[in-house]
Design a protein around this nucleic acid. Sequence first.
DNA 1: ATATTTTGAATGATCATTCAGCAAGTATGT
DNA 2: ACATACTTGCTGAATGATCATTCAAAATAT
Lengths: 235, 235
Amino acid sequence: MSLRLGLKGRSMALKVKAASAASEPADADRRGRKASKETRRQQLVEATIDSLAKRGYAETTLADVADGAGLSRGIVNFHFESKENLLIATLQFMADEYATHWSAAYDKADPAAASRLWALVAADFDRKICTKRKLAAWCAFWGEAKSRPTYQALCGARDVKYQETFVSLCAELKAEAGYGYEPETMALALCAMMEGLWLRLMMGDGLTREKAHVAAIQHLVSAFPKHMTYEGPKK
Amino acid sequence: MSLRLGLKGRSMALKVKAASAASEPADADRRGRKASKETRRQQLVEATIDSLAKRGYAETTLADVADGAGLSRGIVNFHFESKENLLIATLQFMADEYATHWSAAYDKADPAAASRLWALVAADFDRKICTKRKLAAWCAFWGEAKSRPTYQALCGARDVKYQETFVSLCAELKAEAGYGYEPETMALALCAMMEGLWLRLMMGDGLTREKAHVAAIQHLVSAFPKHMTYEGPKK
DNA sequence: ATATTTTGAATGATCATTCAGCAAGTATGT
DNA sequence: ACATACTTGCTGAATGATCATTCAAAATAT
């Protein structure tokens, strides 16, 4: 089976490298033959996000990811066992990054509920998170999530804690000022609006991060008039 | 070229038919050999929506669509030239259906701006439009839209008129009652929220159409307190 | 020397597309 | 009526392209 004598493999070791990788001149390793397993995995995950953003989920191939990372064809199956694993690791990475980001914003904010709510909304439109590149990648996963329990679980896990936090904050504000809504409903509307704004940001049009953020703020102001102004939380 | 003399084709005309088609005893045509071209195209579009909903964009194959329609493998390329065309026709169909639906709701509503706005929001959560099946299909296209100008154009065309309508209505309400927002921003927030609610409906969880609709209504009430109540538009 | 990482050609699976032929319908002639 | 040719919708096996995956050999590190 599959007689396969070298005799050929020889030849071209031309190292036409230099190809793409229009980024990182490296932190330390990156380029060299050795690069800690974790570093290489991270590099491949980043290339995957690029590919998802540029070509979409359906058109993302391992060859494209490998090229994007400036590495060879077999590399993904060496570091991640399969394409599926690579995609899961990519989604996992984005979910972790997102969770870390909003938690930090929450912790750093003034502990008043109004301030925290304001901070969470601002975090969603932060340049670190809210990049066309990353929004496109999120959207690619959303598109497949319905038919893939694994994706759904990862996207869902992101939401559960996040939305619970919103519900608590809305409940606090309601207790403070006696607004006439259900906290769950209000939190749902808020979170849904931010996701919808992300979707539209991704779609292109003329929408900018700033305009989207203003729309979200306007919602805060109209929903919590006793706590919010266009310039920030009251008090 | 392709020298290709019969000599072989002969043989097996066994007609193992009877296979699938576990459905429609037919309205009139459907099953029979004849069925107006338009009917058959429609049937294939429906099967495509099913497949998108069940297996996602990336896993939707022509074989799956053909099986779903209870027809043979080559059928799609006969009626639509290519897979791409089938998908475009499917998106086109959904976009048309959506536009027709909300326009009708708009026209039928009481001409007061508040009533029309209420009607448009209600239309988005109507059982005719807001099905898990269709939401999943929309979402599948959204996921690919960033990298496909054609899809983007079709999704975008849907939005332009729709959002302009919202802007006008918001402007009217502002003129009537002197709310302190920009109509464009408010319309954006509203439309984005409804899309976000669709996204979440599709994702499953415990969210129901009714709960989503209530969340949207709550937004209307808090944004237009002088015009809206939880039960409907005032006046 | 041994172990680890990387390469890239070969393999095999999946799938869109093609197309020769079949069958149902229609038109025309007798 | 029946036979004939012609049109059109449909079928399903064959074709070829794309791509994930494998793995022997090569490069590099320890």
